[in-house]
């Protein structure tokens, strides 16, 4: 478990990192290293170049404003999780982050690193997609913003070019009258989930105005299902609402293709997706109702 030989560049600036990556066809960016280093050690990956961005000043920012949460490429999971302003602005980020690995992994691992690793069984790619966030990347052709919906293109594959460095992620703020929930089933605390589901539900007068649910570990990329057309106008705390929710979840299942592994069969993963989706969408609805009651929407103040 020792990596094969590779070249190493410790970049002092983003420009230097981009330049180094541009000079190699298979360079990899090293941030927290929580996924990359084990892959190197097991010789499952053998890039000829590692570009270490840990020395670049200013990349570790965690900033929350009224738009949402902005995370620099070196913001560690633990720093994001500990940031109360970020939690206020978009509680779903913290709700999901608490399931990422263990404290030691969160201390070192970066949220942006997790986003670009593009693992369909990781929490943060799903959350970015579910919240319709975005990722800013810098390459030889300049800086661009990749919307989450065009970021995840295949298993462990993002739409970043090999010479681009992710510099900042953006998670939009939680709108008023909106609630969130996240739940996952993992074999052990901190493991990759067998299935995880997050939901964002917006209410209006005790009824659903919009709803979406995101699924992890049940497809080769994170999947978000739009549930608004099924649930709009429903109260999910009624028997009728629960029946409708069940049908909506069943509809969402059509977009999923769970795979078997040593921990779970396809059928069990699909079952978990159903169970968790129902629980989580209902919980997000309650959360929204609760938030609407305790923090009236701007419009109602008029």
């Amino acid at each position: 478990m020792k990596p094969a030989p590779f070249n190493y560049v410790r970049a002092d600036s983003i420009e230097q990192a981009v330049e180094a990556l541009a000079g190699s066809s298979d360079g990899k960016v090293l941030a927290g290293g929580q996924s990359l280093i084990p892959l190197l050690s097991m010789r499952l990956a053998g890039p000829s170049l590692l570009v270490d961005i840990n020395g670049i000043a200013g990349l570790d920012e965690v900033r929350a404003d009224s738009d949402g949460v902005h995370l620099g490429a070196l913001a560690r999971h633990a720093d994001v999780l500990a940031n109360t302003a970020a939690r206020e602005v978009q509680p779903l980020v913290a709700a999901a982050l608490s399931h990422v690995g263990h404290a030691t992994i969160r201390n070192r691992g970066t949220t942006v690193g997790s986003l670009v690793h593009a693992d369909a069984s990781a929490e943060m790619p799903l959350i970015l997609l579910l919240l319709a966030g975005s990722l800013d990347v810098v390459g030889p052709r300049g800086r661009r913003t990749i919307p989450a919906e065009s970021l995840y293109i295949g298993p462990l594959e993002s739409s970043l070019e090999h010479d681009e460095v992710a510099v900042e992620a953006f998670f939009p703020a939680l709108p008023p009258m909106t609630g969130i929930a996240f739940e996952e089933v993992a074999r052990r605390q901190g493991d990759y989930a067998l299935c995880g589901v997050g939901a964002v539900v917006e209410v209006d007068g005790g009824h659903v105005r919009s709803a979406r649910a995101g699924f992890m570990s049940v497809h080769d990329v994170p999947v978000v299902a739009e549930l608004t057309e099924h649930l709009a106008g429903m109260s999910l705390s009624t028997q009728e609402g629960r029946v409708v929710l069940e049908a909506a979840v069943e509809h969402a299942m059509g977009a999923l293709d769970p795979a078997a592994d040593v921990h779970a069969s396809e059928a069990y993963r699909a079952h978990l997706a159903r169970v968790l989706a129902k629980r989580v969408v209902a919980a997000a609805f309650s959360d929204a109702t609760h938030r609407a009651a305790t923090r009236p929407a701007v419009g109602s103040e008029a």
Partner: peptide, 16 residues
């Protein structure tokens, strides 16, 4: 052996 690592061989943590 498909689970020859501590990621997939599930030794319980103190949390389990």
């Amino acid at each position: 052996l498909l689970n020859a690592s501590f990621m997939d061989f599930l030794m319980p943590y103190v949390t389990e």
